[in-house]
């Protein structure tokens, strides 16, 4: 019996010794240091909630080269939890990390972090009013935070009473989407308050700006609706047959992404074309002069892919990227 006990005790104790400090989630994603220069697409990948596996992929539009995890490669640490949105301004990339409660400011050439906006609750989207005023919407604080972009300091907040998302400007008025009540909140940036609200028959999921005009698109009880914003609330809504997975405005056309198709509308909201795409689970859309990019999140817990279509609807490339690609811009 003593021999048996010795074997058991040794076995239990030896196995119980921690040989490597492998404590939390481990990623075997590649973080290539490939330098992508020139015309490129920046893909912000949301990552899985609480996994801390958000990332940024860079894609050379001419070279078709791909660099994964460019933030991690440049800064030697993961970017954080839930990458919600990206804005490019003045040679800097502003990356909103929702569940990390921070906005990271990166050099657009090296991806090295040059600053952060901190002490945010659950930031979602950014809107630059001018060089001195940056607005940050928030999932949980029931307020829009006002930031001075140069100092990255909080200079005020606008109580909204609800979860806020995208923002935009129309006729000189800055609007923020109020998600709880499905409203647009017109912001008074002098008194830092909500001046008025416009009720909508759909969820204000997406807001696209063009020449001081604002297009709002969102899912309704059945299908979706879209409309140009009018200050007096006298707006004409165009119904869409299918829920909207993404939207983009480029040139004279509006691109609407649904589960199976991309439909194209003119600025009068008349449908002028469309085609069936190949994405499994389309999640976001970006369009520029180089083409049309569809973020495919697949099953949400596998690496995603961006489908790159030319303007003639030809599939140009499939761009591998991180988990849940959702925010795209081109530099």
């Amino acid at each position: 019996m003593e021999k048996t006990l010795t074997v058991i005790g040794l076995l239990v104790a030896m196995l119980g010794c921690q040989k490597e400090p492998s404590i939390g989630p481990i990623s075997e994603q590649s973080d290539e240091t490939l330098s992508i220069v020139g015309h490129r697409l920046i893909i912000g990948c949301e990552g899985n909630f609480q996994y801390d596996n958000a990332s940024i992929t860079a894609y050379g539009i001419g070279s078709q080269e791909v660099a994964q995890q460019v933030y991690k490669a440049a800064n030697d640490r993961p970017i954080g939890d839930i990458l919600q949105s990206i804005v490019h301004r003045g040679g800097l990339i502003y990356v909103v990390m929702n569940n990390s409660g921070v906005v990271r400011i990166l050099s657009d050439s090296t991806y090295v972090e040059v600053g952060t906006i901190e002490n945010l609750s659950s930031p979602r989207y950014l809107h630059f009013v001018d060089d001195h005023t940056l607005l940050v919407s928030d999932l949980s604080s029931s307020a829009v935070t006002v930031i001075h972009p140069e100092t990255q300091q909080h200079i005020g907040s606008i109580e909204t009473g609800q979860w806020t998302e995208m923002m935009g400007t129309s006729d000189g008025i800055t609007y923020v989407a109020g998600m709880k009540d499905s409203v647009l909140l017109g912001l008074d940036l002098v008194s830092l308050s909500v001046g008025f609200s416009i009720d909508l028959p759909m969820s204000p999921d997406r807001m696209l700006s063009k020449n001081d005009s604002l297009l709002v698109i969102g899912n309704a009880k059945k299908g979706a609706k879209m409309t140009w914003i009018r200050k007096n609330g006298d707006m004409e809504y165009v119904g869409l047959d299918h829920p909207v997975n993404g939207a983009a405005l480029f040139g004279k056309f509006i691109y609407i992404l649904s589960a199976e198709r991309i439909n194209v509308y003119d600025l009068m909201l008349h449908k002028v074309g469309g085609w069936r795409h190949e994405a499994i689970t389309p999640y976001a859309l970006f369009v520029d002069s180089s083409g049309i990019y569809i973020a495919d999140v697949k099953d949400y817990i596998s690496s995603g892919e961006v489908l790159y279509y030319g303007h003639h609807q030809n599939l140009m490339d499939r761009i591998p990227c991180g988990y849940i690609p959702q925010a795209m811009l081109s530099l």
Binding site: L15, C17, Q18, I23, G24, I26, Q29, N48, I301, S302
Partner: peptide
């Protein structure tokens, strides 16, 4: 002794929680 093997947390098997042994 309790042994919990490695568990993938993403479907592409690129991210996982490491194994642990508790004595």
């Amino acid at each position: 002794h309790q042994w919990m093997g490695r568990r993938f947390i993403t479907n592409d098997e690129l991210e996982y929680m490491p194994a642990y042994h508790i004595a």
